[in-house]
Design a protein around this nucleic acid. Structure first.
Lengths: 195, 195
DNA sequence: CTTCTATCTGAACGACTGTTCATATAAGCT
DNA sequence: AGCTTATATGAACAGTCGTTCAGATAGAAG
């Protein structure tokens, strides 16, 4: 669908991000060319540079948006009076949010090495802020005697790694519903921290 | 260190694999050129083709060797009379083996998409065989009433994902020794399966 | 209807890609 | 000593890469 010159700015921008997201997730940042992205949008490669200064910024933009959405949502979705309740809401939120965005998650955790040093540092800061949300819950639980966790930092990383594993196998319409998956992982997480 | 023609076959082969391993892990398969690998070895790019038919085979060779070593080792290192003992030996083995080979692990779990379809299928078969070792332990434990696991397949994937997470943060000489890390993860794994 | 401006094309840039191959070299064998 | 053969060079191939830019085009503004 060859695009003619003129007035498609508001449409083309999101379409470029969507195409880049899908291609980066599927083949990897380095393996995807600007021409392939442009082709997916129905535009010549040069047109992309009306929307991004370069390929690196396109990747960073995708990651940045994902992390900001994640942080904004987790803040409003983690709730409960006890650490156990808050942990459960965190686990269920994490799984649900990630299951809905497999491509974003894949890129955010796999293309960190493709970021420039400055961009890497910025994303890493946001990621650590997300981990801190979980660690605060675990620390609360330890202080209140609700959890049995020898090292909250490692438990945080271990739990998140376990939850992220969902994206390696979950496919919508598979054997298990999202709610069932949430329940199974919540059971494992609850037991892992000795709640 | 420019190489002169002649007789370095037995040395150059392993050096090429070592260089490719490190570069693929650091920058990703698609982002590494044959010339960069050759440069690391101190050889011209053309010389690589005395050792591999093409770049794809070089990647597959690295993965294949890793998976074969993993399968051979796990068979001899998982032991114990009870499912709990066997689970513990699996967890400790997995962490120890993976901690010692961060680059291999990184590639094996991240560059699957860079494999040709046939090569992908072969590696995937080996990986499933490794997962089956753990799942067999979990099934044993469920049958004997030692574990509380609603879905052994998912528990397998969840546990392996959790254990693999070690490689995202563990660095030799850090705050925790390998044995301490094994202990912490074993605690979490044991509790996660309700042992 | 004309002018302005955002948007896109299409060609071009130099650099780099994986791979091939004729040629040179050095070690091992006789 | 010469001869053979494995091993490496270095140039070349056709293709792709990210990025730039002059020029074409179309919708919005006057």
């Amino acid at each position: 669908m060859a695009r003619t010159a003129g007035s498609h700015s508001d449409i083309t921008g999101p379409r470029i991000r969507a195409a880049a997201l899908q291609l980066f997730a599927q083949r990897g940042f380095a393996a995807v060319s600007m021409r392939q992205i442009a082709g997916e949008v129905g535009v010549q490669a040069g047109a992309l540079y009306n929307y991004t200064p370069d390929k690196q910024s396109l990747l960073f933009d995708l990651m940045q948006r994902h992390m900001e959405g994640l942080l904004a949502e987790v803040a409003s979705r983690v709730m409960g009076d006890t650490p156990t309740d808050r942990l459960q809401s965190f686990v269920r939120f994490h799984i649900g949010y990630h299951i809905d965005r497999p491509d974003e998650v894949f890129i955010a955790y796999m293309e960190l090495r493709s970021l420039s040093p400055e961009n890497f540092a910025r994303i890493e800061t946001q990621r650590r802020r997300y981990e801190d949300v979980l660690e605060a819950i675990l620390q609360d639980g330890v202080v209140q005697g609700a959890f049995s966790v020898p090292d909250t930092k490692i438990a945080t990383l271990g739990l998140i790694a376990m939850l992220n594993g969902v994206n390696t196998w979950y496919r919508a319409g598979g054997r298990l519903s999202q709610t069932e998956v949430e329940g199974i992982y919540w059971d494992m997480a609850r037991q892992a921290v000795g709640a």
